[in-house]
């Protein structure tokens, strides 16, 4: 276990270095930040001064080397636009995004698994079909469109929910959270639903497929024949069988929800890191883009690791280290 963790850590460092290099090349390819930062009326002297102040006058590889040296000592650079350490900016915004993603994921799981079970146990019933038809809505309509329709109905027409921003926060374990206050919940409701919709549909479909397979398998039939209650059969035997693929997908999607809540955050003006990322990309604020993606990769690595550990707990046949261990 320890050796496995150490090996994964080594690989992670490699991933982070490679990632940062790719982002550097990518931003370099998109355009020159000076074009966007410097006032268009400024002359050549001012442009040169700004380039020098931001370190953009040096050769590309040297810029990357400066970044690497800083990164090794924990300094990911300062935002070109805000003149704050990039990491500070991101860590300020990340809790809001994680909260949004977390609430959306809880909604998706809390609704998706039960609905999927119903649809899988009674695939030919009206309810089963209705659930499946409804789930199609979830991933066929673009997120931005659904978001605006939600705002039109609940903020503009009915006046029930605020259309933008994050509500009042409370400090819990040193982090500001908003889902414990009523004002916070009111602000959270629409963006969370908007973000959850796609995951909800996906989970319904996965659970249904898994359930349909499981109920036909011998051990479930056997459990039923033994006279176990329906609830116990579903809760223990069926659910256990469908958990592995669901954990995989939740792992994949949780990361993507946190990283790419961009569209939802910009429609609802949610002050999270997705909005920071898109604004940084628009202004080619390279230090923030690089630092942001490094934070996200780290997050992915941690999630993957947790998912792998969960596998081994859920299914003893899976050994940590996967393919490597069996060679």
């Amino acid at each position: 276990m320890l050796a496995y963790a150490i090996r994964r850590f080594g690989q992670s460092v490699f991933v982070l270095v490679l990632m940062s290099f790719l982002v550097f090349i990518g931003v370099y390819a998109i355009g020159n930040p000076i074009e966007l930062l410097v006032n268009p009326q400024a002359d050549e002297v001012e442009r040169a001064r700004a380039a020098a102040a931001l370190g953009l006058d040096r050769p590309f590889l040297e810029q990357y080397w400066v970044f690497l040296k800083g990164a090794a000592s924990g300094d990911l650079g300062r935002s070109f636009v805000y003149n704050e350490p990039a990491l500070t900016l991101i860590l300020d915004k990340l809790p809001a995004t994680i909260e949004l993603a977390f609430v959306a994921m809880v909604m998706a799981i809390g609704l998706g698994i039960p609905l999927g079970l119903v649809a899988g146990l009674k695939p030919d019933s009206f309810v089963g079909r209705a659930i499946m038809a409804g789930s199609i809505l979830g991933f066929s309509l673009p997120t931005f469109w659904v978001g605006l329709v939600l705002i039109m109905v609940f903020s503009v027409q009915l006046g029930w929910l605020p259309s933008n921003g994050r509500g009042e926060t409370m400090m819990v374990a040193g982090l500001p959270v908003s889902f414990l206050t009523a004002d916070g919940l009111a602000h959270l409701a629409m963006p969370a639903v908007n973000l959850a919709l796609f995951k909800l549909s996906l989970l319904i479909r996965l659970t249904r497929a898994g359930t349909r397979e499981a109920v036909l398998q011998d051990y479930v039939k056997f459990a039923r024949a033994k006279g176990l209650s329906q609830g116990r059969v579903i809760g223990v035997h069926v659910l256990k069988n469908i958990l592995i693929p669901i954990v995989t997908v939740i792992g994949l999607e949780l990361g993507s929800v946190i990283a790419f809540a961009i569209v939802t955050e910009s429609i609802f003006a949610w002050p999270g890191s997705g909005k920071l990322l898109i604004d940084s990309i628009n202004q080619l604020d390279r230090p923030v883009i690089v630092a942001y993606l490094l934070v996200i990769v780290t997050l992915f690595i941690v999630i993957n690791f947790v998912v792998d550990v969960l596998y081994s707990l859920l299914d003893p046949r899976v050994r940590l280290g996967g393919a490597a261990a069996s060679h």
Binding site: L148, I151, S155, V156, P162, S163, N164, S266, A269, D279
Partner: peptide, 18 residues
């Protein structure tokens, strides 16, 4: 001053009285 970069979000904020 609230930063509402998305045009639709800006309009919705006024329409809903935010």
């Amino acid at each position: 001053f609230k930063i509402l970069t998305n045009p639709a979000a800006r309009v919705a904020a006024l329409l809903s009285g935010d």
